[in-house]
Design a protein around this nucleic acid. Structure first.
Lengths: 219, 219
DNA sequence: TCAAAAGTGTTGCTCATACACCCATGA
DNA sequence: TCATGGGTGTATGAGCAACACTTTTGA
């Protein structure tokens, strides 16, 4: 039931809708987040870091908005993203009433171009030394990390962190980076194989002075 | 990262934020939803049923908005609600661009007053014969029921359907109504007791010609 | 003594965990 | 032959599913 009789009343004149994307990758065994530096002079958070985000256009859905913003501001295309939570605290943005639909986004390192169309300074920051972020973005991060950690154990969401072909050890490193704890190699392999999500490519790869490892893909 | 430089551009002039509450109860072993009938003449859905909802005021959060609307339009106070998902399809409301933050709400039958402040016709409708609803509310219902079903098996959310004191059989009936399937009495009791959420009041109750049942409360 | 719901135990299976050694390779 | 990571099996305990009968009560 949505009534529009109040559409033009003073209740609504500040309704502004945004999206924010908590964008993760796992690089060399470390869970990292993509941050952008706030540059505009009339923002009291100028110079601080925040998740990539922006206003939703009236001709796009929230999903489309996230894709556009991650592309334009983060230089990332074809990313996996899913809606996280909508943050609507009245004072979450000091410039006015901004309600933000937050997303988690997951990428492997291959789809990242290190340029973006906006003049936005970005960086990847390990979750373990995240600075104080602008707005309520530390709180959003907390919810996002919780969601990511719970989904990686009961879904195949880890695949969005992986390249097409990978070894079981690489996959295990991703799980460990996300969950922040080591796992038993034998139990990890047994469980992941029994989930029946992986396909053995029969190819092997070797990185250094050691036995070659079998390459897998997600089905 | 939210930039407000486009705040006044034509991209935004239709941004309207609403909430919708998929409000559940279990009555006599049947899972029901609260619906309101659309009355306004300038709505093409006039006469159809929809979830309780409305626009978010600029001085309230989405949570507060749901509480207000369920109170005013549904006559329900002190309800448990949690955010479900934000629906942002461009054409989901034919009157214009309305983004809706959907909630699930759970009530036991005691907090329901059968009057509301708005002149809104409401009814409780069994999920099993839900009519075609206005807007995208059938889709919202689907997501809401999925969420309710998954949460009832790994959380104690069922308590919001129960009165203060209840028998294990009554609790089981609620689980069965939500999940849509019968459960084994012995296994149900074992599991629910082992979760350690219940407290035996040592009181018993009797409804008819039968052995009295023990009353429990949630801790 | 009957009807109606309350209440109760055991067994087998599946799944998660804990745990240690050998293998293949190139230097 | 050594260093490095790749790869494997077993035993134990916890939790879930299947399954049927006895108890209490009032009519």
């Amino acid at each position: 039931m949505e009534s529009k009789k109040n559409l033009k009343s003073e209740h609504l004149k500040f309704a502004v809708l945004a999206v924010d994307a908590v964008c993760f990758r796992v690089k060399e065994g470390v869970l990292e987040l993509l941050l952008g530096k706030i540059g505009s002079d009339n923002n009291i958070y100028k110079g601080q870091w925040a998740h990539i985000g922006g206003l939703i256009y009236s001709e796009e859905t929230a999903d489309q908005s996230v894709d556009r913003l991650l592309g334009d501001k983060g230089g990332i295309k074809n990313i996996h993203r899913e809606q996280l939570y909508t943050f609507s605290d009245i004072d979450r943005d000091p410039r006015g009433r901004v309600v933000s639909v937050a997303y988690i986004a997951l990428t492997n390192n291959d789809d990242i171009q290190n340029k973006n169309d906006a003049e936005l300074e970005t960086k990847w920051c390990p979750l373990s030394n995240l600075p104080k972020l602008a707005y309520d973005h530390n709180e959003i991060t907390k919810v996002a990390v919780e969601r990511l950690r719970s989904k990686i154990i009961y879904t195949d969401i880890a695949k969005y962190f992986m390249p097409t072909e990978f070894t079981l050890s690489e996959l295990q490193k991703v799980y460990e980076a996300v969950l922040g704890e080591g796992m038993d190699k034998r139990n990890f392999r047994k469980r992941i194989i029994s989930l029946n999500l992986l396909k053995n490519t029969k190819k092997t790869v070797k990185k250094g002075v050691m036995r070659p490892a079998t390459l897998y893909t997600f089905k």
